[in-house]
């Protein structure tokens, strides 16, 4: 894994595999890290717990964050990221099943960069995820760290 990578926070193995598949199709799938719940996501990003030996300076280009997660849910992960000086500006895209207003509002309120609903039809899903990967991984210029 090089210096640039995408972090996928996804508990559903089906969605995980489809997401990975879509990112690979968009040629951004080689630099991926997948974690299965909110706690693991924070452990990974802040290099703590099982990820204590990881270089904490190495942050993903973008976090694709599901909302409904075991242990800590997506909104709590978002809050924790935005509360920390180091990850305040880390690009986060909420990628989830629902378009319930309370999810959308809460996500933006706690500082998501984008909110994307996973389409059911795989064609649409893979094009949406592919474009997200391309944009945040290749095109977007984040702040210099």
């Amino acid at each position: 894994m090089g210096n640039k990578f995408i972090l996928v926070v996804e508990d559903n193995p089906d969605d995980e595999e489809l997401t990975v598949h879509a990112l690979r199709q968009a040629k951004v799938g080689n630099d991926l890290k997948v974690v299965r719940d909110g706690k693991e996501a924070l452990d990974f990003i802040f290099a703590q717990g099982p990820y204590a030996d990881r270089d904490p300076e190495l942050l993903p280009s973008v976090v694709l964050l599901d909302l409904k997660l075991p242990k800590l849910d997506g909104i709590e992960v978002l809050k924790a990221l935005r509360a920390n000086e180091k990850t305040r500006t880390l690009p986060v895209v909420v990628l989830t099943s629902s378009k319930e207003q309370r999810d959308v509002v809460a996500s933006y309120q706690f500082g998501t960069n984008s909110y994307v609903r996973k389409p059911i039809a795989f064609g649409e899903f893979s094009s949406a995820v592919g474009q997200l990967g391309l944009y945040w991984f290749l095109l977007n210029e984040g702040p210099q760290r």
Binding site: H21, A121, F122
Partner: peptide, 16 residues
Amino acid sequence: SHDLRAPLRAIDGFGE
């Protein structure tokens, strides 16, 4: 909204 849609996505996705 959250849970019933994921399996459908899997059916369509893996079919594809």
